[in-house]
Nucleic acid binder design. Structure first.
Ligand SMILES: NC(=O)c1ccc[n+]([C@@H]2O[C@H](COP(=O)([O-])OP(=O)(O)OC[C@H]3O[C@@H](n4cnc5c(N)ncnc54)[C@H](O)[C@@H]3O)[C@@H](O)[C@H]2O)c1
Ligand SMILES: NC(=O)c1ccc[n+]([C@@H]2O[C@H](COP(=O)([O-])OP(=O)(O)OC[C@H]3O[C@@H](n4cnc5c(N)ncnc54)[C@H](O)[C@@H]3O)[C@@H](O)[C@H]2O)c1
Lengths: 206, 206
DNA sequence: AGGGTTTTGTTTAATAATTAACAATTAAAT
DNA sequence: ATTTAATTGTTAATTATTAAACAAAACCCT
């Protein structure tokens, strides 16, 4: 596998790609680094550097060929065989995410939902099967799920995480307000609204 | 105003505080840096350094006094007069956030909701008044709203942002999948699920 | 009381990320 | 064809963040 890219670069590449996909509609085939930069409130140098890191080259005086750049980013971000994802806890937030994710990223396959509520399990929701948590380990293995989105109530966040890790999940997005304990080979993304909001609040005042 | 803290430190302080508030239930009055560290998958040094930066001191061999530390973090993160927040776009996601936020952080006052849908406007939702977007500028000024959570459909994200900035909003959490354009004195937090999910996917593979 | 141990606070070093600098290239203008 | 201006790719410098190192204080044990 190629060398690990900086975390921040990975984030930006994902953002660039989305912007570029929309940009396709504009009818222009090329885009300049400073244009892409302006669309993301960052600098042309940053953009060029990020693109350099994935080994793609634009053409001078012309910019980057949009379609090629999208492909080049895909080559870095996407697993060619796809990666399977589950949502655990299909409540308010889980449902919103479920609908939002649908058809968004072709390389990320939402394969399973898990809940404890019998009303929700044993059927498909928006085309995705929803299983009872009791089947979690078996289903995670069956569907080869490597990534889980955790949207359960905070009281059960830690035990659910333990189940997921035990079942072989390698990456976790934690939407709950509970700090989780994972082995260091599991990638944990804390995705807490309050933290981000308090950060905004702080930097607005400072 | 005191010196600006590092972005990452601010994030962690927010997380520490939440953990500490829960920890109050444990009955213990003190907590060690390594305990707090373990709860957040980071190191004791990091914790001590963060705490040092806000000027709070623990007692050696005893650790940090939980209640005092919570207060000390509040002194840094919270505006004593509170800060007012609005949610713009009360759909699936906006509603989930609305319910989630309720009563969570006393220093952040959710003062207003905005939507274009006449079904939703002109009344209170969960105790918060929901106004039509036409009144946005006036209501933002009336309620002195400094922070906005943007959960409108992506098609209108940019125009809505322009309205908000014009009306005087100083901080923005962008939940939409659209890169926004803001003056540099407005603090913009991109809060995109896809980006984070793709990042997890990348680091799981690498 | 004194030696050993634990834990904090702070300084110094290492690593990661951003920004600046600039050479190389190429399209456009003359 | 030559010059000029624009734009990329890359290296070097700067700044931000994390980790390591260690002295100082506080407790514990004898
Ligand atoms: N709503 C938000 O905007 C928001 C924002 C940030 C974080 N959060 C956090 O996300 C989590 C979910 O929030 P929500 O508003 O969707 O709550 P919710 O109560 O609407 O949904 C929780 C879901 O999890 C299911 N569940 C309960 N126990 C379970 C278990 N052991 N295994 C599997 N599923 C189980 C419930 O049946 C329910 O469907 C909470 O921890 C909340 O703090 C929510
Ligand atoms: N649902 C998710 O999990 C999720 C996750 C990430 C990002 N997002 C993004 O968040 C946004 C909202 O998602 P959603 O699922 O809540 O959509 P939604 O359609 O349920 O809600 C959108 C709301 O915005 C209102 N609205 C429309 N035009 C408006 C305007 N000009 N001013 C004010 N309000 C207006 C609509 O009436 C509706 O209530 C979308 O841009 C989506 O891409 C959603």
């Amino acid at each position: 596998m190629k060398k690990k890219l900086p975390r921040k670069t990975v984030e930006r590449l994902s953002e660039y790609r989305r912007t570029l996909i929309n940009y396709l509609d504009s009818g222009r085939d090329y885009i300049f680094s400073h244009e892409l930069a302006d669309m993301h409130n960052n600098t042309a140098v940053q953009v060029r550097r990020d693109i350099m890191l994935i080994g793609y080259s634009g053409v001078q005086r012309r910019g980057y060929k949009v379609k090629e750049l999208i492909r080049a980013i895909g080559k870095v971000l996407d697993d060619p065989r796809g990666q399977n994802v589950a949502i655990v806890g299909v409540g308010h937030l889980g449902t919103a995410i479920l609908h939002y994710l649908k058809g968004k990223r072709p390389a990320l396959h939402l394969k399973a939902l898990f809940d404890i509520d019998k009303e929700k399990t044993g059927r498909e929701i928006n085309g995705i099967p929803c299983y009872p948590v009791e089947e979690l380990a078996a289903r995670v293995r069956e569907h080869k799920i490597g990534i889980a989105i955790l949207t359960v109530p905070m009281e059960v966040a830690r035990e659910t995480t333990a189940l997921l890790v035990e079942a072989g999940v390698r990456g976790l997005m934690n939407f709950t307000t509970v700090p989780l304990d994972v082995p260091e080979d599991v990638f944990l993304e804390e995705y807490d609204l309050i933290t981000s909001l308090e950060k905004v609040a702080y930097f607005v005042r400072i």
